[in-house]
């Protein structure tokens, strides 16, 4: 819906890079974050992925300056901004609730920040008109947030963030208030907007599909630590540990404890029916998804999820095999890949 060249006029002029060094945050004696290291390049979109309560929103709030770390540093273009007040960080954030000012019109929502920062009136009006056009909100300028649909609200929040000309762009679960269909529709648009700029983007989500669809790289966060950080392909093909393996890929990976103290990970989509060898299985239940079937099968090693292109009925017995290169092996005690 938009082109990167038009977007870049509204984001920061100088490319920036964001580094988090050994960030720690405790509440009472509970460690929310425990030595988080991350780097985001100019124009790169990094997704922070993790279950709720893993500390991913805390990372955003620390970057924004809405919360202060107990340990570590935050560097923007090499400047230490750890102690800098939020107003002077030039950071924009799209909140989960969008945080649109309910008593102001859309146009006022967009221009008030510039007004407060002393941008002259004529320039404000121009910029607001441009960004409204860009995000297909041209007709909405005089409406109140309550009169907009969920998707429109999200775009207003994005527009407001763009007008901040941020050096870092933060998004906190921006899709979670939208229904599933709208989410899929908006993903490419959002990606086009985010990737057009030169500011680093940090995108928090608990939805791995969304992370894979939008981000250049994904950092999986759990227990206050970065479990793995890499491109979606890297995380899918070589999960660093059991946590990442369980988080990336749907349906979830099958994890089979082995007698030698390892865990064998097999993705449901990598299992194939074979005539000999492999595991003997019996179909327990099935979900029909159109192009494929989602099966739960019983094997001597336990129950397995299997994505199957054919049409099998409950009770069918067959043998399942897999290619050697699709095996993931983890140490049972540490969970690390071996």
């Amino acid at each position: 819906m938009t082109t990167p060249t038009t977007i870049s006029t509204t984001t920061a002029a100088a490319p920036a890079s964001l580094r988090l060094e050994n960030l720690g945050r405790r509440i009472g004696d509970r460690a929310i974050l425990d030595g988080v290291n991350l780097a985001v390049a100019p124009g790169e979109c990094l997704a922070l992925l993790g279950p709720s309560g893993c500390g991913k929103s805390t990372v955003l709030r620390l970057i924004a300056g809405l919360d202060a770390p107990d340990a570590g540093r935050i560097l923007l273009d090499g400047d230490d901004i750890t102690e800098r007040p939020p107003a002077r960080r030039q950071v924009a954030m799209v909140f989960q609730s969008y945080a649109l000012y309910p008593h102001l019109s859309v146009a006022r929502n967009l221009s008030l920040g510039m007004e407060v920062r002393g941008v002259p009136r004529g320039e404000r009006d121009r910029e607001v008109a441009t960004v409204l056009q860009l995000l297909q909100l041209a007709e909405m300028g005089q409406r109140r947030p309550a009169e907009l649909s969920g998707g429109q609200r999200q775009r207003v929040a994005l527009a407001r963030a763009l007008l901040r000309r941020p050096r870092v762009f933060l998004l906190d679960e921006p899709m979670s208030n939208l229904d599933a269909q709208l989410r899929e529709e908006l993903r490419p648009q959002l990606r086009a907007i985010l990737c057009g700029g030169s500011a680093p983007v940090v995108y928090v989500t608990h939805d791995q599909q969304e992370a894979m669809g939008i981000a250049d790289r994904i950092a999986v966060l759990q227990d206050g630590r970065v479990q793995q950080c890499g491109t979606p392909q890297e995380l899918y093909q070589a999960p660093a540990n059991l946590i990442v393996a369980g988080f990336i890929g749907r349906p979830q990976i099958n994890l089979l404890p082995q007698p030698d103290g390892t865990v064998l990970g097999l993705r449901p989509e990598h299992l194939v029916a074979v005539t000999e060898g492999g595991l003997p299985v019996r179909v327990l239940s099935r979900e029909w998804h159109g192009a494929s079937q989602q099966l739960l099968v019983a094997s001597p090693q336990g129950e397995l999820r299997w994505t199957c292109a054919g049409n099998l009925s409950i009770g069918a017995e067959l043998r399942l095999g897999w290619a050697r290169e699709h095996e993931h092996r983890f140490v049972q005690t540490t969970g690390q890949r071996c």
């Binding site: 107003a87 954030m93 407060v116």
Partner: peptide, 15 residues
């Protein structure tokens, strides 16, 4: 009042 409203204003540079 939702706290994000004020936080967003804070990020936008409001005193």
């Amino acid at each position: 009042l939702p706290v994000e409203l004020e936080e967003n204003a804070l990020l936008e540079g409001f005193s």
